[in-house]
Design a protein around this nucleic acid. Sequence first.
RNA 1: GUGGGUGUAGCUCAGAUGGUAGAGCACUGGAUUGUGGCUCCAGUUGUCGAGGGUUCGAUCCCCUUCACUCACCCCA
Length: 419
Amino acid sequence: MMITGIKGMNDILPAEIAAWHFLESQVREVFPPFGFNEIRVPVLEKTELFCRSIGDDTDIVEKEMYTFPDKSGHSLTLRPEGTASVMRAYIEHKMYAQNQVEKLYYVGPMFRYERPQKGRYRQFHQIGAEIIGETSPLADVQLLNMLCRFFGSIGIRDALLQLNSLGCPACRPGYRQALAVFIASRLDVLCSDCRRRHQHNPLRVLDCKVEQCRTACQDAPSVLDHLCADCSTHFATVRRLLTDLNIPFEVNKRMVRGLDYYTRTTFEMVSSRLGSQNAVAAGGRYDGLIASLGGPPVPGIGFAIGMERLILMLNSSSFPPSRPDIFLVTLGDKALEKGFSLLSGLQVDGLRAEMDFSGKSMKAQMRRADKVQARLVLILGEDELARNQIQIRAMDDGSQETVDLDRLLPILSDRLAAI
RNA sequence: GUGGGUGUAGCUCAGAUGGUAGAGCACUGGAUUGUGGCUCCAGUUGUCGAGGGUUCGAUCCCCUUCACUCACCCCA
């Protein structure tokens, strides 16, 4: 039986790698001007870290983590998201003692044990950014601005920014209570999922996709009406500054986040082009997280972008496969070996050069050159070898010239520059 | 964890009320003894996802299982 990869864990093949390189290079170009530095943390952490940060009652912790004991019996978990690990590193290295505000970003694989579907895999990749140590709504807006700039830089214009506020420990319990009362009054018209949800997470009912539930919750109490004065002012400032920066957004008072640690500002970037999993990026403020992990009482805000979902949105035809500069065709045993060392010289000089090693017919070699879309073909046969010459053929127009071998390099760079 | 769809050549897919399979593309060679793309000719490729059952005989019918895929739950 063939050994296959693990369900939901995909190989990224050479044909797809250009899109990944593109995203990674855009991150490294767009983020640093906003003051962000990259951090790399391990993919494995002690299980306890995720239980405490994401929340014991969340689906992620309850059923979606890759958790197993190592040889000494410690329970380890493949990270299901990046924020927890970054906060652990922040606290462990006492980064708060260096800078009052720390801005960090990361790129890498995350792991969740779920049934794969379009835009959702067991190993997936996220680009994340965090601002730690800043309470001001300016931090929220800077982060969102950077997120939108990033989307613009990769040519995505049809993602919609949705914004909400979840309040803080001062005002959220009151809202939750009011909502629970409302839902209890409509329980008979809600779907079975929502009836179950209203027990442990009433906010989720607002997010239900069932039409009947949506209409039933039409006039449910809004979080935004229950925000305390501080949260309300914070949210108003975020909206005002976004408008000042010409960043389009939409307030979605039904938006709920799946992780326990979020407070105040939460947001999502959604797209209709993604199928059912329509969020391509999401995040929010987590003012209590760092303290709850044993760090100082500093606030934070961050986002994560799903790279696979991003790639679904990109036009794949804008990433043409890279083509060789040169394909060397040889005829005869002597030319094969002489050509091979010539090839090596070209490659050392940084040209992308290929040839056939197996002594195929000239027609076959030419076909190969055409197939890989080489720009130039070099032809080295017994005749050319005897005269210390080589032929250069431009594949686009079929024009051909014979040049002395010792003048090859400068002529090649001329011809390549002209294409 | 639940539900639907799909598994036939490297790829995309046909196929027959059960008699052990085909096309296009791709690949190789030739027409053009040292010149690609177009055209023409020839050739290669399959445990018909796996296991079991019914049958003289199963790729097709039945059961089981696995994989892929979409959706639910939930999430990036």
